[in-house]
Write a protein that binds this DNA or RNA. Structure first.
Lengths: 181, 181
DNA sequence: GTCTATAGTGGGATAGAC
DNA sequence: GTCTATCCCACTATAGAC
């Protein structure tokens, strides 16, 4: 603990300027999607020119990595809270879905495509996964459970279910199956 | 039936030139991924300049739509064959996974992001979904089942499971849960 | 730490000649 | 149906002045 002031754990260890850049990046991502997050757009959002951003971050992917870490941390918080309140698989699943639907573009950034694991702060990914493992018991069931939840969410976000589909019922059916374990 | 010769159902209703363009597009997609599929690259693969492609397709997305239709049709074939041979959920799931892993980039194109349903030949999507519905019985379970399978596949393709994860075991755990229904 | 200027790359698509 | 020439766009990133 070398920090001289209390501060949010998230985004850690950076200058205030860098923190405001990450905050702006998050705003752009969440409001307009991943393609809208460009260095020009990000510079404009924070009030400087794109090239100046490179004084704070070595490249664009470093900004994205910061966002991915935030997403994992928030997911960990959300799932831990759900477990504390409820303890049921259904409660955990509902919390997972709620977070993903509330932050679709951040969820996508965190869960889709290759993950630069070596650039993440250690343990960040595991802390988000822990609540699922805790409720299912074994790792294989946890992975199956996560795959189900991720599949449901990403198909919903992508509009892949038929227009009239009852997704609550599909979630319930899936959870019931797992729970019968 | 107005066709005067026997022909593969796939890619249908187009000039031979257009068919060869789609074939080349598929090759590029499968071998190098979606980003590699550009009009310049596609023209080169088929031996003409990019602008000439626009005599055969109105735009790039039309080529992609043709590929999506092919993907759906092949998936329908694969799942129907699995059902005919076996009839078990496990057999169906294995066929689903096998096809996706054999054609990762095509699978992604078909199942990820927004789907231009109105541009697809009618029924193409439903025919791929039918075998899953047939084995699960009700639509809610079918959607849960599909979400599980898609989640497992896409997380595997994206390298999202931990390096040592036993994915066969995770599949088995998920299928066992659904089967206990 | 900010700027301007710019390099370098690549993309989709159109016009008009042949 | 193919070509050349070209437009217009957008992006990441760097150089060098201030």
């Amino acid at each position: 603990m070398t920090a001289s002031q209390s501060e949010p754990a998230v985004g850690s260890q950076r200058s205030p300027r860098a923190a405001s850049i990450v905050a702006a990046a998050r705003r752009i991502l969440e409001e307009e999607g991943r393609d809208a997050l460009t260095m020009r757009r990000l510079g404009a959002a924070v009030g400087i020119r794109a090239p100046s951003l490179y004084k704070h971050f070595p490249d664009k992917s470093s900004v994205e990595v910061a966002l991915i870490e935030i997403g994992f941390e928030e997911m960990a918080d959300v799932l831990n809270s759900a477990t504390d309140l409820d303890g049921s698989l259904a409660g955990l699943a509902a919390a997972y879905r709620r977070y993903a639907l509330a932050h679709p573009h951040l969820y996508r950034l965190v869960t889709s495509g290759p993950l630069p694991r070596e650039r993440l702060r250690p343990g960040v990914e595991d802390r988000a996964a822990a609540p699922i493992l805790a409720v299912t018991g074994d790792p294989d069931s946890a992975r199956a459970c996560w795959a189900f939840a991720h599949g449901m969410v990403i198909l919903e976000l992508d509009g892949r279910f038929p227009p009239g589909a009852d997704l609550d019922a599909a979630w319930t059916a899936g959870i019931a199956a797992i729970d019968r374990e």
